[in-house]
Write a protein that binds this DNA or RNA. Sequence first.
DNA 1: GAGCCACTTGTCATATTATAACACTTCTCG
DNA 2: CGAGAAGTGTTATAATATGACAAGTGGCTC
Lengths: 170, 170
Amino acid sequence: MTSGSSNISTDVPLGFERHDHAACVSEGLLAAETRCADDGLRFTPVRRKVLEILLQEHRALGAYVILDRLREEGFGSQPPVAYRALDFLVTHGLAHKIERLNAFIACAHPDQIHAPAFMICRLCDSVAEAQSRTSRSVLASAAKATGFRIERTVVEAEGLCPGCAEQADA
Amino acid sequence: MTSGSSNISTDVPLGFERHDHAACVSEGLLAAETRCADDGLRFTPVRRKVLEILLQEHRALGAYVILDRLREEGFGSQPPVAYRALDFLVTHGLAHKIERLNAFIACAHPDQIHAPAFMICRLCDSVAEAQSRTSRSVLASAAKATGFRIERTVVEAEGLCPGCAEQADA
DNA sequence: GAGCCACTTGTCATATTATAACACTTCTCG
DNA sequence: CGAGAAGTGTTATAATATGACAAGTGGCTC
């Protein structure tokens, strides 16, 4: 994703790094298509559009922002339309909910097993997804000690992204 | 808190372990009082009552549940009353918000520096707070690698507590 | 291809969580 | 004591999320 190659479509440091952002969208959609085909899931127009909307930003979007965009594109405009598509994407690992923000973001690693961790910039709102091995976490050891059986984890850090931290220091 | 001593007031395994629960409440309130006195904070009746309500359970309570109890006790009954008290408690480390549940829980370690991690049982709703050192976490290394400056972390695991896991297996 | 089924979409209605703004009171500190 | 800051209570409203039901769509068997 960090693109050693071609056309940088934006120089905003989204996901904290410059990259070929157009590729994020197309690759993301392609990965989702493949995945759905493989797993016998229906990648319908609404679902596709919602993922596309999410992929367009390395930020978390609220359900109602997504809903507005869906309306503009001619889809249904009532909350369940957005929530159901988001639910589908989250359930199948194509998107994640950022609990801290009550908002949603496209998955950056739809191929791998995901116990994702996020870094959320409180100034520019960008969100980066880190790959995480659950096993060596604080949670894993605490869970082991008490006998808790982990099914899902929420790991989110709030703070300043590299760019904003630099500006803040200046 | 695991009480080598006296009267077990309930045998429900709250916080996943049997313990002298009456002591949780009184010790919690005492710790808060001390802390507020030390730091020149006002531990007013509403704030005290909200903390007491939270301490009575090793579960996260929604703001509106708390609000109902406040009303029963003769306090104001509009949302801001509860939210302001909760905000005070969270700001000063006497309570935490469980983002996954949009709900609140009393801090189990009000004395220490807190980068807490929680284990949430999806069946019995109990929540245990683990002590965590942020430093060796997935987040810390990801942050270091990208230059992200962490200010606050949310670490929550959802799954089955020891008791519920056992029942589920049976 | 007709009929059946599961799934998806769209809508209305409503629940749940959270905050803005303002008047009034209480506490603190000079 | 008086001025200002902090806290409380209220009204009103915003933002987030779900339940229930009707209608449409696609894939299936026979």
